[in-house]
Simulated assay, not measured.
Amino acid sequence: MDTPRPANAEEMLGRAGIDPTPLRLAVARVLAREERALPVGDILALVRDARQANKVTLYRILDLFVAKGLVRRHSSGDRAWRYCLAPVFAGRPHCHAYCVRCGRMDCLPTADGLVDVAALGPGLAMDVVAVEVRIDGVCAACRRQSSPGGRLLTPGRETHK
């Protein structure tokens, strides 16, 4: 069952047991507002729109958020972690779509076709604490920029007329 998204950043931090400092609140607001998995550089730029911040402090905040279950850290294959709200705070479990060209990682709506591993019950050899699904491809913006007529050009393959 989906948990409703908290009304604000302060409520999210409180539910996660995190003291609401001004910078932590700014980071939580960015992650809640963007609704996509962001790399550290993007988070830092968006936080700096509201207040001063440095990369070291941001990494410490993100590590704390991950440790407390507020945020999930996702691998994209390009050595840069992406961060988004954990399902209990995002209001729904979700998977991600990653563009192999521009690096954007979007949070996708809950897909009914995905197996709810946690619902499989006690027959599993482990207690499931998380499931991560990432779909890699080329986003519509990159596809439009790189191919005539917006056709998908598969990386590593030539198109024939």
Rank of each mutant, 00 (worst) to 15 (best):
A67M: 01
A67I: 08
H74G: 05
R15T: 01
I61Q: 07
A141Q: 06
A141V: 06
L114A: 15
V66N: 11
R82G: 09
M1R: 10
A28F: 00
E158S: 00
E132P: 07
R144L: 01
R24C: 09
T3A: 04
D136W: 15
P109V: 06
A140K: 08
R151P: 00
P39E: 09
L58W: 02
G41D: 09
V115Q: 06
I18T: 08
D127G: 01
C95G: 05
T3H: 10
W81G: 02
L114M: 15
G77W: 07
D136I: 10
P148M: 03
A45I: 09
V66A: 00
E35M: 04
C84W: 10
I18K: 14
G137T: 14
V66G: 12
P109N: 10
L31V: 06
M12S: 12
D106W: 15
G123V: 15
V40F: 01
Q52G: 13
V129L: 02
G41S: 14
V66T: 12
F65T: 08
R104S: 13
I61H: 08
M105Q: 15
L31F: 06
A67N: 10
F65G: 04
G150V: 08
I43P: 06
D78G: 09
V133F: 09
S76P: 03
G69H: 05
P4E: 08
V66I: 08
V71E: 07
L70A: 15
L38E: 10
A26C: 11
A111I: 03
A90Y: 05
R157L: 11
V117H: 14
N54Y: 12
I61W: 05
E10L: 07
